[in-house]
Computed example of a mutant assay.
Amino acid sequence: MPGVFAEVRDGRATWRGASGVADVTTGRPMRPDLLHRVGSITKTFVATALLQLVAERRLVLDAPLRRYLPRLAPDGVTVRMLLDHTSGINDYDHVIFGTVESIEKYQHTTIRPRELVEIGLGQEPTNPPGARHSYSNTNYILAGLLLERITGRPATVEVRRRVLRPLGLWRSYFPGTDPTIDGPHSAGYVPWVGGTLQDFSVYNMSWAWTAGALVSTTTDLNRFFRALLGGRLLRPAELAQMRRTVPADPSVPEGTGYGLGLLSLPLPGGLVWGHDGVVLGHHTMSLHSPDGRRQVTVALNATHYWVPGQPDPISEALFRFILTAFGEPTAGRRTLTGRAGHGLLTPAPGTAALAAPLPVLSRR
């Protein structure tokens, strides 16, 4: 792992730290204030904006999605099923990133939201609507289109108007089709064919849009989640709906739960709430006590692979750091229980094409 940085908050006390390098070529050191692609943490912002529409009685969670998006919604899918990933709609990212060549192709290619939805809907459903949790980015592309249909404004503009600006999150933004990160940031590395590290920090994130395109900082993410969990963005009724979870893995009902754009993770001291985000070369985890007073957001600048059954010191170090941040004992604990969606530490969307070289790449 080239570099890592984090911000931990406990009430009014804040600790920031960084280790390693932001650029393996120049040796530029990592800094705790850098911008970062936060991937699927974007979903929590989008879900928050939609739940504000629920509070305004402009959206009904258990209404058929076809009421709002008649030409795109499958039979039986409700708004809630999009937000907690129980719709059964399949994911598009393993289709558009099916080969190494396609990963390189989309680095400088714009793909529109409706194209992404059509790809997702063009695959067999993962399950009947409402049957179980099955994480799919297609759900949150549809959520973005839903936000646009109801408000009449671009989805990213609406998230900025409803969430980013009121909280003063001035360093958080959607890059649109601009492949660069606008401000100080680290490289974003993917272990690549031939045993090298390839920097994908320059990448057209239109493929992720409202499912994972947000750029932010550890400070902004902590500020957002404290405001969200503290009741500044949603009324109690809508926040309670957001925290109504389904098992991320039905075989482990006591493990990670997934609500409406918000996951719960059981620690010995109780549940923590937040989300993780993984895109090419950037990984972020943002976890918080139920009231948002104790917080940890940590970012890594490389996609992390591991070989099942082999030691995984990077994951162990990350988990121990998170447990320490929450004041939890770390002795004898090698992993956090339950993994959501992509998992709390799994390869990024778009890297399935690299599965064959994993035994080589994971040793680097």
Rank of each mutant, 00 (worst) to 15 (best):
M1N: 07
F5D: 02
E7H: 15
R9T: 05
G11W: 14
G11D: 03
A13I: 03
G17R: 11
T25H: 15
T25E: 15
P29H: 07
L34V: 00
S40T: 06
S40V: 05
T42Y: 12
V46I: 13
L53D: 11
L53N: 12
V54R: 11
V54S: 06
L59C: 09
R66G: 10
L72H: 03
V77P: 08
R80H: 02
D84E: 10
N90A: 15
Y92W: 07
F97C: 00
F97T: 00
G98E: 11
T99C: 12
I111E: 10
R114D: 09
G120V: 01
E124Y: 04
N127L: 10
S136N: 07
S136H: 01
T138Q: 12
N139Y: 09
I141L: 13
L142F: 07
A143E: 15
G144A: 03
L146E: 05
R149H: 03
R165G: 11
D178Q: 13
T180W: 08
T180S: 12
H185D: 02
S186H: 00
S186R: 00
S186I: 02
Q198S: 05
S201N: 01
G212Q: 01
A213F: 11
V215L: 12
N222F: 06
R223A: 15
F224W: 08
A227K: 02
R232D: 07
L233D: 01
E238F: 03
V252K: 13
P253H: 06
G257N: 04
Y258D: 03
V272I: 13
W273D: 01
V279N: 02
H283L: 04
T284D: 06
L287V: 05
H288T: 08
D291E: 05
Q295N: 10
T297D: 01
A299F: 01
L300Y: 04
A302W: 00
A302Q: 00
W306R: 15
W306K: 12
P308W: 01
P308T: 13
D312L: 03
F321N: 00
F321T: 09
T324Y: 09
T324I: 01
E328R: 07
T330N: 09
A331G: 12
R333E: 01
R339V: 07
R339F: 11
R339L: 07
A340N: 09
L344R: 08
T346D: 14
A356P: 04
P359D: 07
P359R: 03
V360N: 09
R363V: 10
R364Q: 14
